[in-house]
Nucleic acid binder design. Structure first.
Length: 288
DNA sequence: CCACTCTAGGTGTCTGATTT
DNA sequence: AAATCAGACACCTAGAGTGG
């Protein structure tokens, strides 16, 4: 099992390193136009370029890993590429080119009126205030059930498709997850991320379904109290899976979070990420 | 091929409530 | 009263897809 997980990480991160190497030269040159930075030495700028690129790309890579790991635990059939619990008829020749997981629904998720209702729901249940007078968000696993009724009004005789970060069936229960790396979303991103999760829930139209805002790690340290703007829009902690909680939810039960982190480190050592990035940077800077 | 849009990731500053 | 902390609000760059 350890070996299977390691191979998944090797696979996804090898792809990642190739795309970073492919894009690096152009990203580096683009930085020349930023006069705030271009008096710094080239090495320094090159490192900045790498960080930006890695952070942006690695989210997709780890999301792909998470999906494949969940399949080890729950089985292929419970982590379908195309989530279609109602068995809706797919359009002829439907294919999913990007390889991401999608939800199939007949709820009109493009309807401005539906978006309005979801926005209203989130806004009315928003947490507010500080300190002792703080009122937490009342968007809970229970209160979101009313979105099913709301969504029912928008069912149409056609198919809509919506990408989802991770969606799987765990026994009788569906789980929808919006995954972020550290989850420190800014205040203008937080509401839209919460609404995306609620929209997916509304689209799925399943009573036995839970929604989670998940992060790959706890940005304040594993086990630490977690804070972010998203907490104003989803009830904490029941709608959240932070760091270890997230991984232990999808990892096969015999693999602990600690063990997983170890496997990840081994995989990246095997790819020799550090040395490859160093070589990439010095090659690029050296040609200028 | 370029412009545009959406999503991915990140960090910083300020203020009032709470604690010391 | 000073120090600390949590919450609110804010900005930047990269990548993928799409349509002209």
């Amino acid at each position: 099992m350890d070996e299977q997980i390691k191979n998944i990480i090797l696979d996804e991160f090898t792809k990642l390193v190739h795309t970073i190497e492919g894009d690096f030269h152009i990203n580096f040159l683009k930085k020349r136009h930023n006069f705030l930075l271009n008096q710094l030495d080239k090495m320094m700028i090159a490192h900045m370029v790498f960080v930006s690129s890695f952070e942006s790309k690695s989210g997709n890579a780890i999301q792909a890993c998470a999906k494949r790991i969940a399949r080890l635990r729950f089985g292929e059939e419970n982590v379908p590429q195309i989530v279609n619990p109602k068995g809706l008829a797919l359009p002829n020749g439907f294919c999913n080119p990007k390889g991401e997981q999608v939800v199939i629904t007949n709820v009109n998720i493009e309807s401005a009126a539906l978006h309005g209702e979801i926005n209203k729901f989130r806004e009315e249940h928003k947490g507010r205030g500080r300190g002792k007078s703080r009122i937490e968000s009342s968007v809970t696993q229970e209160s979101i059930k009313q979105l099913l009724t709301i969504g029912g009004k928008y069912i149409e005789d056609r198919i809509y498709i919506k990408p989802v970060d991770l969606c799987f069936r765990d026994g009788e229960e569906w789980n929808i997850m919006e995954i972020k790396a550290g989850g420190a979303l800014d205040s203008s991103n937080a509401p839209s991320n919460a609404e995306k999760l609620l929209l997916l829930y509304t689209a799925l139209q399943e009573k036995n379904c839970r929604c989670y805002f998940a992060t790959l790690y706890n940005k304040d340290g594993e086990g630490a109290h977690w804070n972010s703007g998203v907490k104003a829009h989803l009830s904490y902690p029941e709608m959240f899976l932070i760091g270890r909680q997230f991984w232990e939810r999808i990892l096969p039960q015999e693999i602990s979070f600690r063990n997983f982190v170890k496997i990840y480190k081994q995989a990246l050592t095997q790819i020799d990420l550090n040395a490859r990035i160093r070589t990439m940077i010095s090659d690029c800077v050296g040609t200028l």
